[in-house]
């Protein structure tokens, strides 16, 4: 036996993981009876169903035949840079303010592109910063901290 379609095999594993997790945690809540369902009833049942589906998908990808169809591989650079630019924005927004975190978001995310040019990205960051300040802060009056909280506290 070997894995013929890695895509299905992995998708099945993800389903099994979430299914078991859901069933296990729901078992800790009150299950109740079918006439009077507790908070654990529905998610427990769903977890069971998802686990079975995951097993069917995974086992269906196994076969005795030859040939493996691999899942398309991840490209690490765009994934890591795009996601970390978003996470950084979230982490920096409160303590350092919108101005700083916007510039960081744009520059880090721009690096994910294969056509990254340093000067262009910096220019883009400042143009977008101006747009954000005018549209979101001035016109739409979003309540967002602008400058580092430390600085604002001192002034």
């Amino acid at each position: 036996m070997h894995i013929r379609r890695t895509k299905d095999f992995k998708a099945g594993l993800i389903f099994i993981f979430f299914g078991i997790a859901s069933a296990v945690f729901s078992a800790g809540y009150q299950i109740g009876t079918s006439a009077k369902m507790g908070p654990g009833y529905f998610p427990f049942a769903l977890g069971g169903v998802l686990t079975v589906l995951g097993l069917v998908v995974s086992l269906g990808s196994l076969s005795r035949g030859e040939g493996t169809r691999k899942a398309r591989s991840f490209r690490v650079k765009p994934v890591v840079l795009v996601l970390s630019s978003v996470v950084l924005f979230g982490l920096l927004l409160r303590p350092f303010g919108l101005v700083f975190s916007t510039v960081i978001l744009i520059i880090v995310s721009s690096m994910a592109s294969d056509e990254f040019k340093k000067k262009e990205a910096i220019l883009n960051a400042f143009v977008l910063l101006a747009i954000v300040l005018i549209v979101f802060v001035y016109f739409l009056k979003f309540q967002i901290p602008l400058l580092p909280s430390l600085l604002v506290g001192r002034i």
């Binding site: 630019s85 978003v86 979230g90 744009i106 990205a121 977008l128």
Partner: peptide
């Protein structure tokens, strides 16, 4: 390459608000 950072930024601001 200039457009997608802008989309990310607007998404993040939208989610926060």
């Amino acid at each position: 390459r200039l457009l997608y950072p802008a989309i990310l930024l607007f998404c993040c601001i939208g989610i926060y608000s």
